[in-house]
Simulated scan of single mutants.
Amino acid sequence: MMSENDESKLRQFDFWLGEWDLTWGDNGRGTNLITAVLDNRVIQEQFDGTPSTPLQGLSVSTYNTQLGKWQQTWVDNSGSYLDFVGEFADGKMVLSREAMLEGKPILQRMVWYNITEQALDWNWERSEDGGQTWQIMWQIRYQRKVE
């Protein structure tokens, strides 16, 4: 049996649900379709970077009640497999992971912020100093698709 607190945490990613037009950089464009599946316990992402980049990817995210954190798995057409863990706090969803870059340990994270009903911002960030400082590697602006 889930607690009421767990139930509310299961809804923390609902802001991301829907169809989105994405923009980045000078003229980057793409789309993202975010749906709730498996009894609304899993958030599924279908990212399409075309025409600006050939990158296409899928993610699944779920709130792990035993861990008390969100977990996400990302796969894409470049062969990437990434796994993240994090939480929603102070109006931001932050999911992070440890990785290796040229033989050195780094941290990577995604941050969803400036969240409104119609728009939000997303950053892909990297830290080479254990999380003391972060460098933005990719910043995407989400705008909800108009029906």
Rank of each mutant, 00 (worst) to 15 (best):
Q143R: 14
S52G: 00
L82H: 10
W124M: 09
Q132S: 13
N40Y: 12
F15M: 01
W138C: 04
S96Y: 13
T73K: 14
M2C: 04
D21Y: 03
T133E: 08
G91E: 06
T65Y: 07
L95K: 03
K69L: 13
F15Q: 00
N5L: 12
I34E: 06
D90T: 04
Q46F: 13
Y113L: 11
L17M: 07
R41S: 09
T62R: 09
Y63M: 02
I140T: 15
S78H: 10
I43F: 13
E4I: 09
D14F: 08
T133S: 11
S80Q: 12
N114E: 15
D121S: 10
Y63Q: 05
W70L: 13
W70Y: 08
G103P: 10
L67F: 10
G30F: 02
Q139S: 12
G25V: 04
R109F: 04
P54H: 01
L107W: 02
L67M: 11
R29P: 07
S78K: 14
D39F: 05
Y113D: 02
W134Y: 01
D48L: 05
T65W: 08
S52P: 08
G79T: 03
M137N: 12
Q139Y: 02
V75C: 11
S8R: 14
I34H: 01
L95W: 04
G91T: 12
N77Y: 10
Y63D: 08
N64I: 09
E7V: 12
D48Y: 03
N64R: 12
S80C: 02
S59E: 02
S52N: 14
P54G: 03
W122L: 10
V75R: 02
R141H: 15
R144V: 03
N77V: 09
M110Q: 12
Y142E: 06
N40W: 07
S8G: 01
S52L: 02
L22S: 00
K69S: 14
W24Q: 04
Q118P: 13
T62C: 14
D21Q: 06
P54D: 06
